[in-house]
């Protein structure tokens, strides 16, 4: 089985398992404040790392290219309170222009 299929099936199965367990166990479990705090911070840490690696790296090499300009556009759009799809589109258009002309 290809890496892609392993990733698709494995992540889907675990995602459902987590959702189902959450809907099935009594609320008293896992509601300790430390676990709740860490749980809200995990997405912040992982999303930040994903942003960094998907913008400034190619595999195991650091890189500064058209994607960085696309991300700069995304930051400006988010500060300007642009809606979600506009942010992604703005980043893509900027990055495409940079790829073509720089």
């Amino acid at each position: 089985m290809s890496a892609f299929w392993v990733a698709v099936i494995g992540s889907s199965a675990l995602a459902f398992a987590i959702k189902f367990i959450g809907a099935s166990v009594p609320e008293t479990y896992l509601s300790n404040p430390r676990i709740l705090r860490i749980n809200t911070l995990i997405p912040v840490a992982l999303l930040s790392a994903l942003i960094a690696v998907n913008t400034f790296a190619n595999k195991t090499q650091l890189a500064l290219d058209n994607r960085a300009l696309g991300m700069a556009a995304a930051v400006v759009l988010l500060i300007a309170k642009a809606p979600f799809p506009v942010v992604v589109l703005g980043a893509a258009v900027t990055s495409a222009l940079a790829y073509r002309y720089i």
């Binding site: 942003i51 994607r67 991300m71 992604v88 703005g90 980043a91 893509a92």
Partner: peptide, 14 residues
């Protein structure tokens, strides 16, 4: 620009 759409999507979620 699809290579920048992925990190931009993460940024939108963050």
């Amino acid at each position: 620009g699809l290579d920048a759409a992925v990190p931009a999507a993460f940024l939108g979620l963050l």
